[in-house]
C-alpha cells in the first residue's frame, strides 16, 4: 500500500490541478479580503470600523474561514472526484490495478492521498486566510487583534473544517468511482451539500423531520463548526460526521472490491 501511496503522492505533486485548486481558492480569499479593505477607505467611520473588525483575526471564523468552508469544500470535492474519475477518463485504472498488489491496497492508497490532501489543503488555506487578514489589517490601518488564544482557536477551527470536509470528499470519491465519472463525483458531493439543507428548510416545520435533521450530515457539520471541538456537543457532531465518512468509505470498498473492471 505504501508503494501505491508514494505513486499517488508523486502524481499529485506533478499534477497542475493539485496546485491550481489551492491558487483559485486563495484568489477568492484575496478578493474576499481585498474588497472590504478597499471599502474601508470610502466608508463612513462606523462602517469602516465594522469592516476593520471583519478583516481582523477577531472575526476570522465567521468571515475568512467561512469562505474556506465553502470554496474549500468545492475544491476538495473536485480533487477527490478526480482521484477516480480521471483514472477512468484517461483509461489508467486498469494499468494501475494491474500494478497494485490488491484492489484494497489501491483504494486505501487513494483514500490516504485524499485525506492527506484534505488536511494539507484546509490548513494551507487557513494559513493564507490568516495572512490575508494580517495584510488587510495592515493596509486598512486597524488592530489585527492577534493573540495566541485566537490563533489556537483558528487551529482548532481548521481541524473542524477538515472533519467537515471529509464526508464530502469520501462521497465525491465514491460517486466518481461508482459512475466512473468525474462530474458525477463533483455533482453528488456538492449536490448533497446544497440539497440537504434546502430539503430540511422546506420540510423542517414537521417535528419528526426536525428530529431526522439532527442526525443529518449537514446539520452536524454546521453544528460542529459552531460548537467547535472544545465543547462536548462538538465532539458528538464530530463522531456523527466521521460515521458518515465511514459509511461512504465502506461503500467505496464494497463497490470497488466486487466490481469487474471492464473499462477505464
Amino acid at each position: 500500500m505504501l508503494n501505491l501511496l508514494k505513486s499517488e503522492l508523486f502524481r499529485m505533486r506533478k499534477r497542475p490541478q493539485t496546485w491550481l485548486l489551492l491558487v483559485v481558492a486563495a484568489l477568492f480569499m484575496a478578493l474576499f479580503y481585498g474588497g472590504p479593505t478597499v471599502a474601508t477607505f470610502f466608508a463612513n467611520d462606523a462602517n469602516a470600523a465594522d469592516l476593520k473588525q471583519n478583516i481582523s483575526l477577531v472575526d476570522i471564523r465567521d468571515f475568512g474561514l467561512s469562505l474556506n468552508s465553502l470554496f474549500g469544500g468545492i475544491m476538495l470535492a473536485i480533487f477527490a472526484a478526480g482521484l477516480f474519475g480521471n483514472e477512468y477518463s484517461w483509461n489508467t485504472i486498469r494499468p494501475l490495478l494491474a500494478r497494485a498488489r490488491s484492489r484494497s491496497a489501491l483504494l486505501t492508497a487513494k483514500l490516504s492521498a485524499a485525506l492527506l490532501y484534505t488536511v494539507a489543503f484546509t490548513f494551507a488555506l487557513a494559513a493564507l486566510t490568516v495572512l490575508f487578514s494580517f495584510i488587510s489589517t495592515m493596509v486598512a490601518g486597524g488592530d489585527w487583534g492577534f493573540t495566541g488564544e485566537r490563533l489556537l482557536d483558528v487551529v482548532w477551527y481548521t481541524f473542524g473544517l477538515v472533519a467537515v470536509n471529509l464526508p464530502y470528499v469520501a462521497l465525491a470519491m465514491l460517486a466518481a468511482m461508482w459512475a466512473k465519472s468525474n462530474a458525477a463525483g463533483i455533482g453528488v458531493a456538492i449536490g448533497l451539500s446544497i440539497l440537504e439543507p434546502s430539503l430540511f428548510g422546506i420540510f423542517g416545520r414537521f417535528s419528526f423531520v426536525e428530529d431526522i435533521q439532527k442526525g443529518g450530515l449537514n446539520q452536524n457539520t454546521v453544528d460542529l463548526l459552531s460548537n467547535g471541538l472544545t465543547s462536548g456537543d462538538g465532539w458528538i457532531n464530530l463522531i456523527v460526521t466521521l460515521i458518515y465518512t465511514g459509511i461512504f468509505v465502506a461503500l467505496a470498498y464494497r463497490v470497488f472490491l466486487r466490481r469487474d473492471v471492464t473499462s477505464g
Binding site: 502524481r11 506533478k14 499534477r15 497542475p16 484517461w90 483509461n91 489508467t92 486498469r94 494499468p95 494491474a98
Partner: peptide, 14 residues
C-alpha cells in the same frame, strides 16, 4: 505480468 490493455494509457500531464 506486464501488460498493455487495449491502448497504452498513461497520465497526460506527466
Amino acid at each position: 505480468i506486464g501488460a498493455i490493455i487495449e491502448n497504452p494509457a498513461f497520465y497526460p500531464y506527466l
